[in-house]
Write a protein that binds this DNA or RNA. Sequence first.
DNA 1: GTCTAGATCGCCT
DNA 2: GGCGATCTAGACG
Length: 175
Amino acid sequence: MRKWEDDAADVAPGLLGSILTSMIGGEHTAIRVVEVEAYQPDDPASHSFGGKTRRNASMFGPPGRLYVYRSYGIHWCANVVTSPEGVGAAVLLRAGIPIVGIDVMRRRRGREADLVNGPGKLTQALGITGLHDGADLTGDLLRLELDDRPCRYETTRRIGISKATSTPWRFVAVD
DNA sequence: GTCTAGATCGCCT
DNA sequence: GGCGATCTAGACG
């Protein structure tokens, strides 16, 4: 098991290829993570920039937990907290490949395709909502299994933000 | 108390 | 490829 406490930009590529399992609602679903973005404490695009608040509290550790927030009033976005307590760093889970419970994901998503190819879609397919903010990722409800084998990936600029757009902290797995 | 921007998605042309 | 939907935290008065 890799350490959580490292730099988010350092940990992020290590999350590629890992398996995220959800037992939310008593239904078993799992995906392979193929796209992530790192957000750092000193990063203007990060929610933790400017200090701890009620919304981003779970982003300030302890590590190995989930930070969930609502985006554009409609979608949920899930992050893996990577920082020790008191520090705000996390890795946004942007996309994955369905592994287990594809029929469940289709039902939750209300469509056949495009099940987990975006942050909001990922949370919907796995049943993740604001209720799971702060959830332990080594627990029974949610579990993130890291893949020991190194994964080939590309590094690009982040998407959908208006600040620090040139920082190359988006990581996409390549086959 | 009121205002505003936002780490997006899905439908429309 | 463009645009409207829809809600919450944070900033300001």
